[in-house]
Design a protein around this nucleic acid. Structure first.
Lengths: 252, 252
DNA sequence: ATAATAGTGTCTCTAAGACATTATATT
DNA sequence: AATATAATGTCTTAGAGACACTATTAT
Protein backbone atom coordinates (compact mmCIF):
# COMPACT_ATOMS: atom_id res chain seq x y z
CA UNK A 1 0.00 0.00 0.00
CA UNK A 2 1.83 3.02 -1.20
CA UNK A 3 0.73 6.48 -0.23
CA UNK A 4 -1.45 7.84 -2.96
CA UNK A 5 -1.78 11.45 -3.85
CA UNK A 6 -4.41 12.98 -1.65
CA UNK A 7 -7.80 13.76 -3.07
CA UNK A 8 -8.69 17.38 -3.20
CA UNK A 9 -9.49 18.63 0.26
CA UNK A 10 -12.96 19.66 -0.80
CA UNK A 11 -14.27 16.34 0.50
CA UNK A 12 -14.44 17.79 3.98
CA UNK A 13 -17.55 19.84 4.59
CA UNK A 14 -15.61 22.39 6.55
CA UNK A 15 -12.12 23.42 6.13
CA UNK A 16 -10.13 22.18 9.02
CA UNK A 17 -6.71 23.50 9.85
CA UNK A 18 -3.87 21.49 8.41
CA UNK A 19 -0.78 20.42 10.22
CA UNK A 20 1.60 22.88 8.65
CA UNK A 21 -0.99 25.56 8.77
CA UNK A 22 -1.51 25.02 12.47
CA UNK A 23 1.76 26.71 13.06
CA UNK A 24 0.71 29.99 11.56
CA UNK A 25 -2.80 29.43 12.62
CA UNK A 26 -1.87 29.16 16.25
CA UNK A 27 0.44 32.10 16.10
CA UNK A 28 -2.53 34.30 15.51
CA UNK A 29 -5.04 32.01 17.07
CA UNK A 30 -7.89 33.47 19.01
CA UNK A 31 -9.44 30.61 20.92
CA UNK A 32 -12.85 32.24 20.82
CA UNK A 33 -12.77 33.16 17.17
CA UNK A 34 -14.53 30.09 15.83
CA UNK A 35 -16.90 27.65 17.45
CA UNK A 36 -15.39 24.49 18.81
CA UNK A 37 -17.20 21.58 20.36
CA UNK A 38 -18.16 21.97 24.01
CA UNK A 39 -16.25 19.75 26.37
CA UNK A 40 -17.89 17.86 29.19
CA UNK A 41 -17.10 15.03 31.58
CA UNK A 42 -19.49 12.24 32.53
CA UNK A 43 -18.73 9.92 35.40
CA UNK A 44 -19.86 6.32 35.74
CA UNK A 45 -20.13 5.94 39.51
CA UNK A 46 -20.32 2.31 40.52
CA UNK A 47 -20.79 0.62 43.84
CA UNK A 48 -21.99 -2.70 45.11
CA UNK A 49 -25.04 -3.17 47.24
CA UNK A 50 -26.61 -6.52 48.13
CA UNK A 51 -23.98 -8.29 46.08
CA UNK A 52 -25.10 -6.54 42.92
CA UNK A 53 -23.48 -3.83 40.90
CA UNK A 54 -25.20 -0.46 41.08
CA UNK A 55 -24.71 2.64 39.02
CA UNK A 56 -25.57 6.18 40.02
CA UNK A 57 -28.07 7.65 37.55
CA UNK A 58 -30.77 10.24 37.68
CA UNK A 59 -33.87 10.44 35.55
CA UNK A 60 -33.89 13.49 33.35
CA UNK A 61 -36.53 15.95 34.41
CA UNK A 62 -36.40 18.05 31.27
CA UNK A 63 -36.60 17.27 27.60
CA UNK A 64 -34.96 16.17 25.46
CA UNK A 65 -35.13 12.57 26.50
CA UNK A 66 -37.12 13.42 29.61
CA UNK A 67 -37.55 10.37 31.77
CA UNK A 68 -34.41 8.70 30.56
CA UNK A 69 -31.67 8.18 33.08
CA UNK A 70 -28.41 9.99 32.76
CA UNK A 71 -24.93 9.82 34.21
CA UNK A 72 -23.81 12.74 36.33
CA UNK A 73 -21.75 15.14 34.28
CA UNK A 74 -20.69 18.70 33.81
CA UNK A 75 -18.75 21.00 31.60
CA UNK A 76 -15.02 21.40 31.83
CA UNK A 77 -13.97 24.80 33.09
CA UNK A 78 -11.35 26.73 31.24
CA UNK A 79 -9.02 26.58 34.21
CA UNK A 80 -9.73 23.08 35.30
CA UNK A 81 -7.96 19.88 34.34
CA UNK A 82 -10.07 16.99 33.11
CA UNK A 83 -9.34 14.99 36.23
CA UNK A 84 -10.36 17.90 38.41
CA UNK A 85 -13.60 18.28 36.51
CA UNK A 86 -14.34 14.59 36.97
CA UNK A 87 -13.66 14.78 40.70
CA UNK A 88 -15.86 17.82 40.99
CA UNK A 89 -18.74 16.03 39.29
CA UNK A 90 -18.12 12.99 41.45
CA UNK A 91 -18.08 14.98 44.66
CA UNK A 92 -21.26 16.80 43.78
CA UNK A 93 -22.97 13.52 43.02
CA UNK A 94 -22.10 12.18 46.45
CA UNK A 95 -19.25 9.86 45.60
CA UNK A 96 -16.54 12.00 47.10
CA UNK A 97 -14.89 9.12 48.91
CA UNK A 98 -14.19 7.11 45.79
CA UNK A 99 -10.89 5.31 45.87
CA UNK A 100 -10.54 4.97 42.15
CA UNK A 101 -11.30 7.57 39.53
CA UNK A 102 -9.96 6.87 36.09
CA UNK A 103 -10.42 8.24 32.66
CA UNK A 104 -12.25 5.84 30.41
CA UNK A 105 -12.74 7.07 26.88
CA UNK A 106 -13.81 10.17 25.07
CA UNK A 107 -17.05 10.11 23.18
CA UNK A 108 -17.35 12.49 20.30
CA UNK A 109 -19.89 11.26 17.78
CA UNK A 110 -21.40 14.18 15.98
CA UNK A 111 -24.95 13.90 17.17
CA UNK A 112 -24.55 12.22 20.51
CA UNK A 113 -26.25 15.22 22.02
CA UNK A 114 -29.20 16.31 19.90
CA UNK A 115 -28.93 19.97 20.82
CA UNK A 116 -25.43 21.02 20.07
CA UNK A 117 -21.99 19.59 19.73
CA UNK A 118 -20.72 18.17 23.01
CA UNK A 119 -17.69 15.96 23.30
CA UNK A 120 -17.55 14.18 26.63
CA UNK A 121 -14.61 12.67 28.43
CA UNK A 122 -16.00 9.73 30.37
CA UNK A 123 -14.60 8.62 33.71
CA UNK A 124 -15.47 5.76 35.97
CA UNK A 125 -15.32 5.73 39.75
CA UNK A 126 -15.55 2.88 42.21
CA UNK A 127 -17.17 3.91 45.43
CA UNK A 128 -17.00 1.91 48.65
CA UNK A 129 -20.07 0.23 50.06
CA UNK A 130 -20.30 2.81 52.84
CA UNK A 131 -20.49 5.81 50.58
CA UNK A 132 -23.52 6.98 48.62
CA UNK A 133 -25.40 6.43 51.86
CA UNK A 134 -27.95 9.14 51.29
CA UNK A 135 -28.88 7.85 47.90
CA UNK A 136 -31.58 5.24 47.65
CA UNK A 137 -32.30 5.26 43.97
CA UNK A 138 -29.48 3.17 42.66
CA UNK A 139 -30.33 1.27 39.52
CA UNK A 140 -28.90 -2.19 39.22
CA UNK A 141 -26.61 -3.25 36.43
CA UNK A 142 -27.47 -6.75 35.35
CA UNK A 143 -26.02 -9.01 32.72
CA UNK A 144 -28.53 -11.01 30.67
CA UNK A 145 -25.53 -12.50 28.95
CA UNK A 146 -21.90 -11.97 29.81
CA UNK A 147 -21.44 -9.44 27.05
CA UNK A 148 -24.79 -7.76 27.28
CA UNK A 149 -25.70 -5.27 29.92
CA UNK A 150 -28.98 -3.93 31.11
CA UNK A 151 -29.97 -1.45 33.75
CA UNK A 152 -32.87 -2.12 36.08
CA UNK A 153 -34.51 0.65 38.08
CA UNK A 154 -35.69 0.48 41.68
CA UNK A 155 -39.16 -0.57 40.49
CA UNK A 156 -37.73 -3.57 38.68
CA UNK A 157 -38.38 -2.18 35.23
CA UNK A 158 -35.61 -1.85 32.70
CA UNK A 159 -34.24 1.63 32.48
CA UNK A 160 -33.34 3.39 29.25
CA UNK A 161 -30.39 5.68 29.40
CA UNK A 162 -30.13 9.08 27.82
CA UNK A 163 -27.93 9.91 24.84
CA UNK A 164 -25.05 7.45 24.48
CA UNK A 165 -24.85 6.78 28.19
CA UNK A 166 -25.64 3.12 27.77
CA UNK A 167 -22.56 2.76 25.61
CA UNK A 168 -20.49 4.69 28.11
CA UNK A 169 -21.62 2.38 30.88
CA UNK A 170 -20.78 -0.63 28.74
CA UNK A 171 -17.29 0.60 28.08
CA UNK A 172 -16.83 1.30 31.78
CA UNK A 173 -17.81 -2.22 32.77
CA UNK A 174 -15.56 -3.68 30.08
CA UNK A 175 -12.64 -1.63 31.29
CA UNK A 176 -13.21 -2.55 34.91
CA UNK A 177 -13.40 -6.22 34.03
CA UNK A 178 -10.08 -6.16 32.31
CA UNK A 179 -8.58 -4.23 35.22
CA UNK A 180 -9.90 -6.95 37.49
CA UNK A 181 -7.90 -9.48 35.55
CA UNK A 182 -4.79 -7.47 36.21
CA UNK A 183 -5.51 -7.63 39.92
CA UNK A 184 -5.20 -3.89 40.45
CA UNK A 185 -8.80 -3.25 41.30
CA UNK A 186 -11.68 -4.50 43.37
CA UNK A 187 -10.48 -3.53 46.84
CA UNK A 188 -12.26 -0.20 46.60
CA UNK A 189 -15.66 -1.82 46.72
CA UNK A 190 -15.10 -3.66 49.95
CA UNK A 191 -14.78 -2.44 53.53
CA UNK A 192 -11.53 -1.69 55.27
CA UNK A 193 -11.43 -5.23 56.59
CA UNK A 194 -12.97 -7.99 54.56
CA UNK A 195 -13.07 -11.72 54.05
CA UNK A 196 -12.01 -13.47 50.90
CA UNK A 197 -15.63 -14.31 50.26
CA UNK A 198 -16.59 -10.64 50.30
CA UNK A 199 -13.84 -9.84 47.84
CA UNK A 200 -14.98 -12.66 45.64
CA UNK A 201 -18.53 -11.31 45.75
CA UNK A 202 -17.21 -8.02 44.43
CA UNK A 203 -15.46 -9.72 41.55
CA UNK A 204 -18.52 -11.74 40.70
CA UNK A 205 -20.75 -8.69 40.76
CA UNK A 206 -18.43 -6.90 38.38
CA UNK A 207 -17.97 -9.86 36.09
CA UNK A 208 -21.61 -10.83 36.11
CA UNK A 209 -20.50 -14.45 36.43
CA UNK A 210 -19.24 -16.78 39.15
CA UNK A 211 -15.51 -17.20 39.58
CA UNK A 212 -13.69 -20.31 40.64
CA UNK A 213 -13.34 -20.14 44.40
CA UNK A 214 -10.22 -22.25 44.81
CA UNK A 215 -8.22 -20.48 42.22
CA UNK A 216 -9.49 -17.10 43.36
CA UNK A 217 -8.25 -17.78 46.90
CA UNK A 218 -4.88 -18.97 45.70
CA UNK A 219 -4.37 -16.09 43.35
CA UNK A 220 -5.35 -13.51 45.94
CA UNK A 221 -3.25 -14.97 48.72
CA UNK A 222 -0.28 -15.30 46.40
CA UNK A 223 -0.65 -11.77 45.06
CA UNK A 224 0.77 -10.14 48.15
CA UNK A 225 -2.01 -7.57 48.12
CA UNK A 226 -3.68 -9.03 51.21
CA UNK A 227 -2.53 -8.67 54.77
CA UNK A 228 -4.14 -11.10 57.22
CA UNK A 229 -5.37 -9.51 60.44
CA UNK A 230 -5.62 -12.68 62.50
CA UNK A 231 -9.19 -11.76 63.32
CA UNK A 232 -12.33 -13.38 62.05
CA UNK A 233 -15.77 -12.25 61.09
CA UNK A 234 -18.53 -13.02 63.55
CA UNK A 235 -22.28 -13.24 63.74
CA UNK A 236 -22.42 -15.18 60.52
CA UNK A 237 -24.34 -18.41 60.27
CA UNK A 238 -21.40 -20.50 59.19
CA UNK A 239 -17.73 -20.88 59.92
CA UNK A 240 -16.28 -17.37 60.07
CA UNK A 241 -13.64 -16.40 57.60
CA UNK A 242 -10.47 -14.53 58.35
CA UNK A 243 -10.48 -10.79 57.93
CA UNK A 244 -7.89 -9.24 55.64
CA UNK A 245 -6.93 -5.72 54.83
CA UNK A 246 -5.12 -4.34 51.80
CA UNK A 247 -1.40 -4.86 52.26
CA UNK A 248 0.55 -1.67 52.77
CA UNK A 249 2.60 -0.88 49.74
CA UNK A 250 -0.04 -2.39 47.51
CA UNK A 251 -2.82 -0.64 45.75
CA UNK A 252 -5.08 2.02 47.08
CA UNK B 1 -32.24 6.72 19.58
CA UNK B 2 -35.68 7.99 18.87
CA UNK B 3 -35.89 11.60 17.90
CA UNK B 4 -38.05 13.21 20.49
CA UNK B 5 -39.91 16.43 19.96
CA UNK B 6 -37.57 19.26 20.61
CA UNK B 7 -38.27 21.39 23.65
CA UNK B 8 -39.61 24.82 23.14
CA UNK B 9 -36.53 26.96 23.14
CA UNK B 10 -36.11 28.94 26.31
CA UNK B 11 -34.52 32.30 26.48
CA UNK B 12 -31.16 30.68 25.86
CA UNK B 13 -30.40 29.83 22.28
CA UNK B 14 -29.30 26.30 23.17
CA UNK B 15 -29.61 23.99 26.09
CA UNK B 16 -27.29 21.34 27.39
CA UNK B 17 -27.90 18.12 29.27
CA UNK B 18 -26.87 16.78 32.65
CA UNK B 19 -27.93 16.44 36.21
CA UNK B 20 -29.76 18.58 38.69
CA UNK B 21 -27.56 21.56 39.22
CA UNK B 22 -26.59 21.57 35.62
CA UNK B 23 -30.21 21.89 34.66
CA UNK B 24 -30.47 25.37 36.08
CA UNK B 25 -27.02 26.17 34.97
CA UNK B 26 -27.74 25.07 31.48
CA UNK B 27 -31.13 26.63 31.27
CA UNK B 28 -29.29 29.84 30.72
CA UNK B 29 -26.34 28.26 29.01
CA UNK B 30 -25.07 29.68 25.81
CA UNK B 31 -22.33 27.46 24.42
CA UNK B 32 -20.53 30.41 22.99
CA UNK B 33 -21.02 32.66 25.96
CA UNK B 34 -18.01 31.54 27.92
CA UNK B 35 -14.73 30.21 26.77
CA UNK B 36 -14.24 26.50 26.84
CA UNK B 37 -11.06 24.60 26.17
CA UNK B 38 -10.13 24.07 22.56
CA UNK B 39 -10.28 20.50 21.39
CA UNK B 40 -7.57 18.89 19.30
CA UNK B 41 -6.47 15.43 18.24
CA UNK B 42 -2.89 14.20 18.15
CA UNK B 43 -1.95 10.96 16.45
CA UNK B 44 0.95 8.69 17.36
CA UNK B 45 1.80 7.14 14.01
CA UNK B 46 4.00 4.11 14.42
CA UNK B 47 5.67 1.84 11.94
CA UNK B 48 8.60 -0.51 11.90
CA UNK B 49 11.67 -0.04 9.77
CA UNK B 50 14.86 -2.07 10.03
CA UNK B 51 13.37 -4.04 12.87
CA UNK B 52 13.01 -0.96 15.00
CA UNK B 53 9.98 0.98 16.01
CA UNK B 54 9.63 4.40 14.39
CA UNK B 55 7.35 7.25 15.18
CA UNK B 56 6.29 10.03 12.85
CA UNK B 57 7.33 13.39 14.27
CA UNK B 58 8.19 16.78 12.89
CA UNK B 59 10.47 19.36 14.39
CA UNK B 60 8.61 22.51 15.30
CA UNK B 61 9.66 25.40 13.12
CA UNK B 62 8.09 28.11 15.24
CA UNK B 63 8.21 28.98 18.89
CA UNK B 64 7.14 28.01 21.43
CA UNK B 65 9.39 25.03 21.79
CA UNK B 66 10.94 25.56 18.40
CA UNK B 67 13.15 22.67 17.49
CA UNK B 68 11.30 20.18 19.59
CA UNK B 69 9.56 17.39 17.78
CA UNK B 70 5.81 17.15 17.75
CA UNK B 71 3.16 14.63 16.88
CA UNK B 72 0.91 15.45 13.96
CA UNK B 73 -2.32 16.96 15.18
CA UNK B 74 -5.14 19.27 14.41
CA UNK B 75 -8.23 20.85 15.81
CA UNK B 76 -11.55 19.06 15.86
CA UNK B 77 -14.05 20.62 13.54
CA UNK B 78 -17.49 21.44 14.84
CA UNK B 79 -19.05 18.98 12.42
CA UNK B 80 -16.49 16.26 12.65
CA UNK B 81 -16.39 13.24 14.93
CA UNK B 82 -13.23 12.61 16.90
CA UNK B 83 -12.44 9.52 14.86
CA UNK B 84 -12.88 11.46 11.65
CA UNK B 85 -10.56 14.17 12.88
CA UNK B 86 -7.94 11.58 13.76
CA UNK B 87 -8.20 9.94 10.36
CA UNK B 88 -7.93 13.31 8.68
CA UNK B 89 -4.74 14.12 10.57
CA UNK B 90 -3.41 10.65 9.80
CA UNK B 91 -4.18 10.90 6.10
CA UNK B 92 -2.57 14.29 5.83
CA UNK B 93 0.53 13.05 7.59
CA UNK B 94 0.91 10.27 5.03
CA UNK B 95 -0.36 7.32 7.02
CA UNK B 96 -3.60 6.95 5.14
CA UNK B 97 -3.27 3.20 4.75
CA UNK B 98 -3.12 2.50 8.46
CA UNK B 99 -4.92 -0.65 9.45
CA UNK B 100 -5.43 0.30 13.04
CA UNK B 101 -6.48 3.67 14.36
CA UNK B 102 -7.62 3.71 17.94
CA UNK B 103 -8.35 6.30 20.53
CA UNK B 104 -5.81 6.27 23.30
CA UNK B 105 -6.44 8.79 26.05
CA UNK B 106 -7.39 12.40 26.43
CA UNK B 107 -4.84 14.79 27.84
CA UNK B 108 -6.19 17.82 29.58
CA UNK B 109 -3.68 19.17 32.05
CA UNK B 110 -4.15 22.88 32.44
CA UNK B 111 -0.88 24.11 31.05
CA UNK B 112 0.05 21.38 28.65
CA UNK B 113 0.06 23.97 25.90
CA UNK B 114 1.70 27.17 27.07
CA UNK B 115 -0.35 29.43 24.84
CA UNK B 116 -3.92 28.66 25.66
CA UNK B 117 -6.07 25.89 26.92
CA UNK B 118 -6.04 22.92 24.56
CA UNK B 119 -7.40 19.52 25.46
CA UNK B 120 -6.20 16.86 23.07
CA UNK B 121 -7.66 13.47 22.31
CA UNK B 122 -4.72 11.24 21.46
CA UNK B 123 -4.93 8.40 18.97
CA UNK B 124 -2.43 5.84 17.86
CA UNK B 125 -2.11 4.32 14.41
CA UNK B 126 -0.11 1.36 13.19
CA UNK B 127 1.09 1.81 9.65
CA UNK B 128 2.38 -0.99 7.46
CA UNK B 129 6.02 -1.17 6.49
CA UNK B 130 5.23 -0.12 2.93
CA UNK B 131 3.50 3.10 3.83
CA UNK B 132 5.23 6.32 4.85
CA UNK B 133 7.51 5.67 1.91
CA UNK B 134 8.08 9.27 1.10
CA UNK B 135 9.14 10.08 4.60
CA UNK B 136 12.74 9.60 5.50
CA UNK B 137 12.90 11.39 8.79
CA UNK B 138 11.48 8.82 11.10
CA UNK B 139 12.84 9.03 14.61
CA UNK B 140 13.45 5.74 16.34
CA UNK B 141 11.78 4.74 19.55
CA UNK B 142 14.24 2.96 21.76
CA UNK B 143 13.93 1.44 25.19
CA UNK B 144 16.84 2.03 27.54
CA UNK B 145 14.91 -0.06 30.03
CA UNK B 146 11.69 -1.91 29.45
CA UNK B 147 9.64 0.82 31.08
CA UNK B 148 11.59 3.77 29.88
CA UNK B 149 11.35 5.16 26.41
CA UNK B 150 13.52 7.50 24.45
CA UNK B 151 13.33 8.92 20.97
CA UNK B 152 16.38 9.10 18.76
CA UNK B 153 16.53 11.30 15.70
CA UNK B 154 18.01 10.45 12.31
CA UNK B 155 21.33 11.94 13.41
CA UNK B 156 21.53 9.59 16.37
CA UNK B 157 20.94 12.28 18.95
CA UNK B 158 18.16 12.01 21.46
CA UNK B 159 15.13 14.00 20.50
CA UNK B 160 13.08 16.09 22.91
CA UNK B 161 9.39 16.17 22.24
CA UNK B 162 7.20 19.21 22.45
CA UNK B 163 4.57 19.80 25.13
CA UNK B 164 3.42 16.52 26.71
CA UNK B 165 4.04 14.52 23.56
CA UNK B 166 6.59 12.31 25.24
CA UNK B 167 3.96 11.21 27.71
CA UNK B 168 1.46 10.64 24.91
CA UNK B 169 3.96 8.45 23.11
CA UNK B 170 4.61 6.52 26.31
CA UNK B 171 0.96 5.84 26.85
CA UNK B 172 0.62 4.76 23.23
CA UNK B 173 3.43 2.23 23.53
CA UNK B 174 2.01 0.92 26.79
CA UNK B 175 -1.38 0.47 25.24
CA UNK B 176 -0.01 -1.28 22.21
CA UNK B 177 1.99 -3.64 24.37
CA UNK B 178 -1.04 -4.71 26.29
CA UNK B 179 -2.97 -5.14 23.05
CA UNK B 180 -0.14 -7.34 21.82
CA UNK B 181 -0.72 -9.64 24.75
CA UNK B 182 -4.33 -10.00 23.75
CA UNK B 183 -3.21 -11.11 20.31
CA UNK B 184 -5.39 -8.63 18.47
CA UNK B 185 -2.61 -6.56 17.07
CA UNK B 186 0.71 -6.75 15.30
CA UNK B 187 -0.39 -7.91 11.88
CA UNK B 188 -0.70 -4.34 10.66
CA UNK B 189 3.03 -3.81 10.79
CA UNK B 190 3.91 -6.69 8.54
CA UNK B 191 3.40 -7.25 4.83
CA UNK B 192 0.48 -9.08 3.31
CA UNK B 193 2.46 -12.32 3.41
CA UNK B 194 4.98 -12.82 6.16
CA UNK B 195 6.99 -15.39 8.00
CA UNK B 196 6.68 -16.13 11.65
CA UNK B 197 10.08 -14.59 12.18
CA UNK B 198 8.92 -11.31 10.67
CA UNK B 199 5.90 -11.27 12.93
CA UNK B 200 8.12 -11.99 15.89
CA UNK B 201 10.39 -9.10 14.89
CA UNK B 202 7.37 -6.81 15.04
CA UNK B 203 6.48 -7.99 18.51
CA UNK B 204 10.02 -7.57 19.71
CA UNK B 205 10.27 -4.09 18.28
CA UNK B 206 7.08 -3.08 20.06
CA UNK B 207 8.01 -4.74 23.32
CA UNK B 208 11.58 -3.54 23.24
CA UNK B 209 12.62 -6.98 24.42
CA UNK B 210 13.13 -10.43 22.93
CA UNK B 211 10.27 -12.89 23.08
CA UNK B 212 10.53 -16.63 23.47
CA UNK B 213 10.60 -18.09 20.00
CA UNK B 214 9.14 -21.50 20.74
CA UNK B 215 6.25 -20.26 22.70
CA UNK B 216 5.63 -17.43 20.24
CA UNK B 217 5.37 -19.92 17.38
CA UNK B 218 3.04 -22.21 19.28
CA UNK B 219 0.80 -19.40 20.43
CA UNK B 220 0.55 -17.90 16.97
CA UNK B 221 -0.09 -21.16 15.18
CA UNK B 222 -2.67 -22.15 17.76
CA UNK B 223 -4.41 -18.79 17.64
CA UNK B 224 -6.13 -19.46 14.35
CA UNK B 225 -5.18 -16.00 13.12
CA UNK B 226 -2.65 -17.34 10.63
CA UNK B 227 -3.40 -19.01 7.32
CA UNK B 228 -0.46 -20.89 5.79
CA UNK B 229 0.12 -20.20 2.12
CA UNK B 230 2.24 -23.25 1.35
CA UNK B 231 4.84 -20.94 -0.12
CA UNK B 232 8.20 -20.01 1.31
CA UNK B 233 10.36 -16.96 1.40
CA UNK B 234 13.38 -17.00 -0.87
CA UNK B 235 16.66 -15.21 -1.35
CA UNK B 236 17.43 -15.39 2.32
CA UNK B 237 20.73 -16.69 3.54
CA UNK B 238 19.27 -19.45 5.65
CA UNK B 239 16.51 -21.98 5.52
CA UNK B 240 13.44 -20.16 4.21
CA UNK B 241 10.39 -19.91 6.43
CA UNK B 242 6.83 -20.51 5.37
CA UNK B 243 4.78 -17.50 4.36
CA UNK B 244 1.51 -16.89 6.17
CA UNK B 245 -1.27 -14.45 5.73
CA UNK B 246 -3.89 -13.24 8.19
CA UNK B 247 -6.68 -15.81 8.35
CA UNK B 248 -9.95 -14.63 6.91
CA UNK B 249 -12.46 -14.00 9.63
CA UNK B 250 -9.71 -12.90 11.95
CA UNK B 251 -8.49 -9.43 12.60
CA UNK B 252 -7.73 -6.78 10.16
C1' DA C 1 31.67 -27.58 4.99
C1' DT C 2 29.89 -23.58 7.63
C1' DA C 3 26.67 -20.27 9.20
C1' DA C 4 22.18 -19.19 10.08
C1' DT C 5 17.57 -19.82 10.72
C1' DA C 6 13.23 -23.03 10.20
C1' DG C 7 10.74 -26.41 12.22
C1' DT C 8 9.75 -30.67 15.40
C1' DG C 9 9.69 -33.18 19.63
C1' DT C 10 10.16 -33.58 24.53
C1' DC C 11 10.84 -32.33 29.31
C1' DT C 12 9.86 -29.41 33.30
C1' DC C 13 7.43 -25.96 35.87
C1' DT C 14 3.58 -23.29 37.03
C1' DA C 15 -1.15 -22.02 37.41
C1' DA C 16 -5.99 -23.09 36.95
C1' DG C 17 -9.75 -26.01 37.69
C1' DA C 18 -11.97 -30.00 39.91
C1' DC C 19 -12.69 -32.46 43.81
C1' DA C 20 -12.27 -34.45 48.46
C1' DT C 21 -11.68 -33.70 53.31
C1' DT C 22 -11.62 -31.49 57.61
C1' DA C 23 -12.89 -27.37 60.56
C1' DT C 24 -16.09 -24.14 62.80
C1' DA C 25 -19.74 -21.22 63.21
C1' DT C 26 -25.34 -20.71 63.61
C1' DT C 27 -29.95 -22.75 63.81
C1' DA D 1 -27.99 -32.96 64.22
C1' DA D 2 -28.32 -30.12 60.05
C1' DT D 3 -26.52 -26.57 57.31
C1' DA D 4 -23.43 -23.50 55.40
C1' DT D 5 -19.08 -21.81 54.50
C1' DA D 6 -13.81 -21.72 55.64
C1' DA D 7 -9.54 -23.66 54.84
C1' DT D 8 -6.29 -27.30 53.33
C1' DG D 9 -4.52 -30.82 50.27
C1' DT D 10 -4.22 -33.55 46.01
C1' DC D 11 -4.94 -34.71 41.17
C1' DT D 12 -5.32 -33.43 36.30
C1' DT D 13 -4.65 -30.52 32.51
C1' DA D 14 -2.96 -26.61 29.67
C1' DG D 15 0.47 -23.42 28.51
C1' DA D 16 5.11 -21.31 28.86
C1' DG D 17 9.89 -21.82 28.75
C1' DA D 18 14.09 -24.51 27.95
C1' DC D 19 16.54 -27.42 25.20
C1' DA D 20 17.95 -30.96 21.89
C1' DC D 21 17.76 -32.40 17.34
C1' DT D 22 16.85 -32.37 12.35
C1' DA D 23 16.03 -29.64 7.88
C1' DT D 24 17.17 -26.36 4.28
C1' DT D 25 18.99 -22.44 2.25
C1' DA D 26 23.25 -19.22 0.86
C1' DT D 27 28.17 -18.54 0.83
Amino acid sequence: MTAKPQPSPTSAPREAPTDAEDEQFLASYDPDAFAHPSLAVDVVILTIRDRTLRVLLKPRAQPPQRGRWALPGGFVGLDESLDAAARRVLRRAGGGGAAIVEQLHTFGARHRDPRHRVVTVAYYALVGADALRGIDLLPTVSFPTVDELSVVGPDGAEVRLAFDHHEILSVAVDRIRSRLGEGRIGFELVGERFTLRELQDVHEALLGAPVNKDSFRRKMLASGHLAPTGEYEHAVEHRPGELFRVASGSIG
